[in-house]
Amino acid sequence: MLLLVSSLLPGAALAAEPERLHLLIPAGPGGGLDSTARAIGKALQSSDIRAPVSYENMTGGGGGRALGHFVETAQRQQQTLLINSTPLIVRSLQGLFPQSYRDLVPIAALVAEFNAVVVRADSSIVSWPELIKALQADPRSVTTGGGSVRGSMDHVVLAQALEATGINPRAARYLPYDGGGKAMVALLGGEIDVLSTGAGEVLSYVASDDVRVLAIAADKRLAQLPDVPTLSELGTPVVFANWRGLFAAPGTTAAQTDRLIAEIEAATGSNTWQQSLAQYAWTPLNLTGADFTLYLEAQEQQLQAILSELGFIR
């Protein structure tokens, strides 16, 4: 294993004992960010790239406190990586964070999750076109919902898709829930008719025939849901990925950045990481350094446009 890794890494980093790495997680234990951080940490450690890897869950300010702390104490954070996800861009755009991804050094995107539009298995709506038809007839006849507040991803993806089909997203009803799990209870219990949430959260309910996925907001069909069409196939070109990725502190030298990128590339090539991807049903998103930065810029523009159109940026 070590040999394999060595061949992937620039020689200099390898000769010595692996160094420690600290991962700062701007969310509590148990969620997607936390499991991603711990999975990549496990991969780094088991491939002898970095050891020991320590974790710090810093909650507060919807992730703003960890971000602020990381930027303020950048000098001392040379062996620390911050994990973050799409809400970083959303909240920066909405002015909830004084900082943005531009204050950080993007290292690598790790995984992506795409939103799915889901109905109960016994729902009278069985396809995306039917949903659109029902909403066009009477936008209040269908109650939609999602696992996060209005103006956040679950809502924005749905709103953008509705808008693309000529429905005024403000006329449609959207009920926010505290987390995808509670929103799923609301869907199964019949409080909402349509749920917009991460595709990973619905897989087990699809397996048990409790729900039906109408569409996913991905660029191509997902391996776990081969029968579900993408929104683009259905004539609604909405693609939206919730990425999770790693950032280094501002002021990190180019040499150190290159080294971190090489290390993460090696870790994502390891068996341990491949196992984690399979276990969590994550879609890998392998973008590093400049490619990751370009990706972030594109997503920021996309979000800027949608959010101001929907009135979430003043």
Binding site: S35, A207, S276
Partner: peptide
């Protein structure tokens, strides 16, 4: 989830 178990009806 980290064990690859999917709690739920299944």
């Amino acid at each position: 989830l980290s064990y690859g178990l999917q709690p739920g009806p299944r």
